[in-house]
Write a protein that binds this DNA or RNA. Sequence first.
DNA 1: TTGAAAGCGGTACCAG
DNA 2: CTGGTACCGCTTTCAA
Lengths: 332, 332
Amino acid sequence: MTLEQVAHRAKVSTATVSRVLNNASVVKTSTRARVVKAIEELKYHPNLHARHLAGGKSRTIGMIVSNMENPFFFDIYKTVESDAHAAGFEVVVANTDYRSEQLVASIRLMIGRRVAGLAVVVSEMEPALIEELTDSNIPVVFYDVGAPRQNITNIRVNYGRGIDKIIDYLYSLGHRKLGFVGHHAMLGPINERVKPVLDAVARYPGVEVRTAADADTLDGGRLAARALLASGEQPTAIVCVNDIMAVGALRELRERGIRVPQDVSVTGFDNVKLSEFCYPALTTVHIPRDTIGHLICDTLLSKSGNNAAADHEMVIDPEFVLRDSTGPAPGR
Amino acid sequence: MTLEQVAHRAKVSTATVSRVLNNASVVKTSTRARVVKAIEELKYHPNLHARHLAGGKSRTIGMIVSNMENPFFFDIYKTVESDAHAAGFEVVVANTDYRSEQLVASIRLMIGRRVAGLAVVVSEMEPALIEELTDSNIPVVFYDVGAPRQNITNIRVNYGRGIDKIIDYLYSLGHRKLGFVGHHAMLGPINERVKPVLDAVARYPGVEVRTAADADTLDGGRLAARALLASGEQPTAIVCVNDIMAVGALRELRERGIRVPQDVSVTGFDNVKLSEFCYPALTTVHIPRDTIGHLICDTLLSKSGNNAAADHEMVIDPEFVLRDSTGPAPGR
DNA sequence: TTGAAAGCGGTACCAG
DNA sequence: CTGGTACCGCTTTCAA
């Protein structure tokens, strides 16, 4: 079904059909009626690719995330989508699953689609790729826990600050032997996620921390906790890189008959909904996903507009949330 | 950046550039090298819309789901995506959030994109829309708990069978006063999700059931459970339409000091990962999301291939999973 | 092995 | 208010 066929049936030109489709300019009511009728009879659906190609502009914004399975990313996506829809844009997401080849593929795809804007919400990214993106000339905004990028709008959360708050609290409770559960995106040398923990701990003499990492899933959290528990002395508190993994850790502890928080304390990060619903409810740090989502959309939408200003950086300071998974270190 | 500019720089025709892009036919090695060089220097990314328009075929399959937030849908998506990628397809998802206008919009969008296949994983759907879809001539597969569709491949789970297993088990444990927690997509008259419960209960004289519904989220489950508890006699068992809402119900019970399963039993549905990680772990019914995902992909991919056969229906029989959230009715 | 040119399905400008 | 038509960027014969 093509525009031309519709035009033919309605006995008008393709130009006119196009007009009624975009309810643009003036089309005589009777003509419009004929066209609409033809469209319905033929069950015509305009070809978006053709439309895009001819029109030039995109009306869709892209979003790339590491792991949609983690509600943290999903929450951001949700508000981005909602804002985008409100502005008449649609959004297409891509999941990288923490795999860098997927990241590359997804970015190429987005560029190929000529999206009106792109939000990249992933942890690690090679400089070459970033360059490819900036050269593409499409408005981009990064969300990151890492270092600021140059020449690109960057939203980031002050991860270290959040970790500090957690460690401070745990220290005040008497915890000296800590465990850190991270995810695989942070294997390798000291990275963005582990370093803050080490730094925070370093401020307190006499505090030790061992780390373990696994997949960014419930199971991963469980496995990492198991690894922590299987080797060396049992920590009195387990700090997790995010809530999902913390819930996984909670399960491992429960199955071993280790009580939380009486025997060991556990903390999450992000404050996703689940952190309130698990048992015990998690002490965590709140990252405002909605704010991040709004920021992303505002930036993208205004950028694709006119004011090519504001290629700055916005950093979000996380807030401590006290719940039931933490308590005094045992024997204190 | 366009093909033509690349062609110009490499001093060849656009046809040749196209050839190396699709590494098709024979291109002299030296020529190919020149082109590749030009592409890199210009940081050229082919316009997918143009490519699609010219090429005709799509290489992308669409998927529409009610609520990506529920891991049930996400799990299906995940395996579809993985299978699709393996076959050289990409997949674009759309979330309807249980809103029918969104469903309409998403379907139109997919048709407009001329996707090579479309998976529709939603609860309710108007006949008119279904017709629009069949007329579109694109391979479609539905996943549903409802009645079979005509003329479209339909995968469905025998929801009633699953409910029966749960009710039977609960009955054998002495439960006579039941509560059912559903979600809003099932408001209105007796529908696909509630009816099976009523039917199952009807088989046992003396068993009563009250129902409550809310959003398909953790909070929704909590609220629905609250409603159930706030009115009338306290049920001895709460049957939930899915695991997510069951976890929500668990929280409400916990905060009221009602012990699970000693005071009231709770059941989920789907057997998503979370059902093992919550506390207490949920007795539920297993729906094989991976099988469903594979089925969807196989169907779509083979359909878009040649054999337009198999417009049949596949029904999946769910399996009972016993865990810790159920026990004998109190005082028995 | 490579180039020229005819589309693919729309949009939008220019006349009428 | 409506029609004619030149593209949009790429693929694909058809010849050379």
